[in-house]
Computed example of a mutant assay.
Amino acid sequence: MITRRTALALPFGLLAPAAYGDTPPPICVVMNSGAASISVIDMNTRQIIATEPAFREPSHWALTPDRKTLYVCDAGGNAFFAFDPVTAAPLGHCTIADPYQLAYSPDGKYLVVNALRLNHVDVYDAASLSLVKRFKAGEMPSHLDFSPDGRWCFSSQQKTNALFSFDVQTLEPRWTVPIGNTPAGVLWLNDKIIVCIMGENGIIEVDPVDGRITRRIETGPGAHNVFYDEDNKILYISNRGPGDTSLAALDPETLEIKRIYKIPGGPDDIEIAPDGKIWIARRFAEAVAILDPVTGEYDSIPVGRSPHGIYLSTCLARKGKLTAEII
């Protein structure tokens, strides 16, 4: 059953969660960038149980530090949409300038937003969502991550082929360095920064102190985003194309490729369910793939146009900080 609700300009928390009883089903929330919609899938039945409207271009997500609210970015609509992270009940929206990618600082003090269209990196007070600092570091800021101690933030600048870093405590720039053609996904791993370089079909490893490139590894066409499976110690790279698109599984220490999963339709963001299945947004196939990493086989669920970000409510059972890239 598909239901559609009108997007509401209400303060967050004003709407009551949906009545699912004591045990709501685990859900998958898919951000359909091309359809201006958000699909909600019952993970048990693999059926779409709701389709929520956005304004123009929902892309990525973040959980508030208290885990009580799921924010979904709508970059083209200049808005955050808020949802109950357990049921996906809509909780309203607020105006934010061009939120494409976002992440909370490790101490929960700041929310950093990459404004890809407007070419700035914004730092908001996490509690009030008031703007604290705006950086003009390059063009098309894409993805971001922090050092675990919360001291530094790193943001890929897609059009100017650079990586930008600022000091989170002083809110002053540290450096901007050229790193390759069309950088995207960013992840802190083993005291280094991993950056996907879409135009060079692979990833680079960067020294977080000075931005120096220490390694380059080819993973596949259009290497777009990077994810770390903490439980199984696997680094995943989504190779979005053009060409033969795939999901690459790497050893996180050596960065050696252990397996390539061919996933047509441009795999983008991923999440891992408790049963080990990998849920993958197939950006150009209007579908979500559910991959068995042992057999390499997958099933598909049709969703809206250009599925981008993907969230599983089952992540709430994990301890520690929850992000879209640590799964």
Results as ranks from 00 to 15, higher is better:
I96L: 09
Q101L: 02
P85R: 10
E139G: 07
T95I: 13
F83P: 04
P85N: 09
V72H: 01
D122T: 13
D98N: 13
D125Q: 11
I96N: 00
E57K: 15
H60E: 15
V113I: 15
P148Y: 04
F81C: 06
A103Y: 01
V112K: 00
L144C: 09
S147K: 05
A82V: 03
W152D: 10
Q101R: 08
S128F: 06
Y100W: 12
N78L: 01
Q101T: 09
F80P: 01
L118S: 12
S105Y: 09
D149S: 08
T95M: 07
L131P: 01
F55T: 11
E139F: 02
A115K: 07
F83D: 06
P106W: 08
H93D: 07
K136N: 07
D107Y: 08
H60F: 12
L118R: 13
R56N: 14
L70P: 00
R134H: 03
D145P: 09
Y100A: 03
A103M: 08
S130T: 14
P141N: 04
T69I: 15
W61E: 15
A75E: 11
P65T: 14
F81P: 04
S142N: 12
L129I: 03
L111Q: 03
W61N: 15
A89Y: 05
S147M: 06
Y104F: 15
R134N: 04
G150W: 08
L63T: 11
R151S: 10
R56M: 14
G138L: 06
W152F: 12
F80Q: 00
G92N: 07
W61S: 12
F55P: 01
G77M: 05
K136E: 06
A115E: 08
P106T: 05
S142T: 08
R56W: 09
P90S: 12
F80V: 00
D125C: 10
V72I: 15
